[in-house]
């Protein structure tokens, strides 16, 4: 499980963030005391840091500057200051991303996911059961048979695959699609999923994607 460190001085936001990230299957640590925050970060050694700019003692930008001298841990700056200058400044100090409050939680999760994914490489092909999936070519192979997916279908299938054996809501799928510049509507999603099912059926997997009423889909 990947470890995320929250550095945020407002207790309410901190607790809610913690809950959000725990629900999304991350291990979460939060700093409660901001003295020696740099040493604390290095001791905890997280996979990613969510860093608020306005924190006591040393502000976020200074902390980031000092942290960059020691380590390359991915950092997302979180702030209520919505202007370009602060963003450019943070980026120049070495932040990996910059989000302004009040952030949309799904977008926050997407950004975190994107940065963590960038850290570990995406393999050319993924094996699932006796299928070989090539995300970049949008191909699924089974021995000598192969099917070609459209871009949308591939995005949906990849997302279900990374969250296999878990229920994925339509909203999550939608966010993932929109995040890949595919601004489709509700009907189109339904159509895409049924096409994807048809294609999987050709490979002999009739019920690979199951519908869970009122909750979403699950890849079995």
């Amino acid at each position: 499980m990947q470890k995320i460190l929250i550095i945020e001085d407002d207790i309410n936001v901190r607790e809610e963030l913690k809950e959000l990230l725990i629900n999304s299957n991350y291990e979460v640590v939060a700093l409660a005391d901001f003295k020696n925050s740099l040493e604390q970060i290095l001791n905890i050694n997280p996979d990613l840091v969510l860093l608020d700019i306005n924190i006591p003692y040393l502000n976020g930008e200074e902390l980031l500057k000092n942290l960059r001298k020691e380590s390359n841990i991915p950092v997302i700056m979180v702030t209520s200051k919505n202007n370009e200058i602060d963003e450019v400044l943070s980026m120049s100090y070495g932040a990996d991303d910059y989000i302004t409050k009040p952030y949309n939680p799904t977008i926050l999760l997407l950004r975190i996911g994107a940065i963590l994914k960038r850290m570990d490489n995406i393999p050319d092909s993924i094996k699932y059961k006796d299928l070989l999936i090539y995300p970049r070519q949008a191909l699924i192979k089974k021995q000598d048979k192969e099917i070609i997916l459209t871009k949308n279908e591939m995005i949906i299938f990849s997302y279900l695959l990374t969250n296999k054996n878990e229920i994925v809501s339509r909203d999550e799928l939608m966010t993932e699609l929109w995040n890949n510049d595919e601004y489709i509507n509700d009907n189109a999603l339904t159509v895409n999923i049924s096409r994807l099912r048809d294609k999987l059926e050709e490979l002999g997997y009739d019920d690979m994607i199951e519908t869970r009423k009122g909750q979403g889909y699950i890849l079995l």
């Binding site: 309410n12 936001v13 809610e16 209520s80 409050k101 009040p102 939680p105």
Partner: peptide, 18 residues
């Protein structure tokens, strides 16, 4: 004031989402 008001807004958004 706007930066301050964004904080409770962030809390509310997260609370609702959770």
């Amino acid at each position: 004031w706007i930066h301050e008001v964004k904080l409770p807004l962030a809390t509310l958004t997260l609370k609702n989402h959770n």
